[in-house]
């Protein structure tokens, strides 16, 4: 019984982890149709912000929750102004440009900080005991943060004027422009927000993962698979994709081992996309956000 409870928390964490690393990508890809191959590096920059800030004496919570999204959000805005805004509507070109950006960011971080950076960051929350089993309190915190982040994105898109204007711009930029919306500014803000969410995710994962310049590569494939499997809706799609793939991965990894866990995740995604080429939200929950 204890074991099942602990396992359920582990699987929930696996799902939250996928959702967390995918949400920033879902915003940028789902709303703007920009294939951001530098997404993994945005996560990495969030992690680096935390490592560098804490090495310089900044409080871990401040570094994770404020500095990481702020720094990466600003980088996102700069990237959008210098690179992405010239490429709207040219999906393949954004793919190449952001791949280049990804290599550039890895190169810049490596030349500043070297191949690895010493850190003293460790998990700031203690252990929760379930009978004979222990679960990291930080895992539960991350599940909670992921839910809050989802709620916050929902609130911004659905309840604020900015969200309304942004959704309008994504649906029909010309019409939005004719109604007096500065679409260029909206694109910039949306990209910056997506980057900030990625930065926050990278920062939050810094205490439980290795932070290295090349670590983005381990996230990018899973984030893309989750977002594509989820389909067009940003929140519902990411949630549905994460629950399905994260759940399968967690259960299979527990039963057979991590190699088959990864294989099962990929097989599930392939079957899903064969049956539903537009992702889960292309078939179900089509009107959802």
């Amino acid at each position: 019984m204890d074991q099942i409870a602990a396992l359920i928390i582990q699987i929930a964490y696996g799902i939250a982890n996928l959702a967390l690393i995918s949400l920033g990508l879902a915003i940028i890809f789902g709303m703007m149709r920009v294939i951001n191959l530098a997404h993994g590096e945005f996560l990495m920059l969030g992690g680096y912000t935390v490592v560098v800030a804490t090495n310089n004496g900044v409080n871990l919570w401040v570094a994770m929750l404020i500095l990481a999204p702020l720094v990466v959000g600003v980088i996102g805005v700069i990237v959008e102004r210098l690179l992405i805004r010239w490429l709207y509507g040219r999906m393949v070109d954004t793919l190449l440009a952001t791949w280049g950006l990804s290599l550039l960011l890895i190169g810049i971080v490596t030349s500043i900080f070297g191949a690895s950076t010493a850190t003293t960051v460790s998990v700031p929350i203690g252990v929760i005991r379930i009978g004979e089993y222990t679960v990291s309190g930080y895992d539960i915190f991350l599940i909670f943060v992921t839910l809050c982040l989802g709620a916050a994105v929902f609130a911004v898109l659905k309840l604020t004027k900015l969200g309304l204007v942004a959704r309008g711009t994504m649906q029909n930029a010309q019409m939005a422009s004719a109604l007096g919306v500065s679409t260029s500014r909206i694109y910039m803000i949306t990209f910056g927000l997506g980057a900030a969410v990625s930065g926050l995710a990278g920062g939050l994962l810094a205490p439980v993962t290795g932070v290295l310049p090349t670590i983005g590569a381990t996230y990018i494939a899973k984030a893309f698979i989750t977002v594509i499997s989820g389909g067009a809706s940003i929140l519902t799609g990411t949630a549905a994709g994460s629950v399905l793939l994260g759940g399968i991965n967690g259960i299979v990894a527990y039963i057979t081992g991590p190699t088959f866990g990864e294989v099962a995740l990929l097989v599930a995604a392939i079957i899903l996309l064969r049956l539903m080429p537009r992702g889960i939200t292309g078939r179900f929950f089509r009107k959802s956000l």
């Binding site: 074991q3 602990a6 396992l7 582990q10 699987i11 964490y13 696996g14 982890n17 004979e132 089993y133 222990t134 895992d139 994962l205 993962t209 290795g210 670590i215 590569a217 381990t218 996230y219 494939a221 967690g250 990894a253 527990y254 081992g257 991590p258 190699t259 866990g261 990864e262």
Partner: peptide, 20 residues
């Protein structure tokens, strides 16, 4: 004995198995 592909970053299920 468990083997991990080089890009695995979530070790939660394995840690549970070790506890068990």
């Amino acid at each position: 004995v468990e083997f991990f592909p080089l890009d695995v970053t979530n070790f939660g299920p394995t840690i549970q198995k070790i506890q068990a």
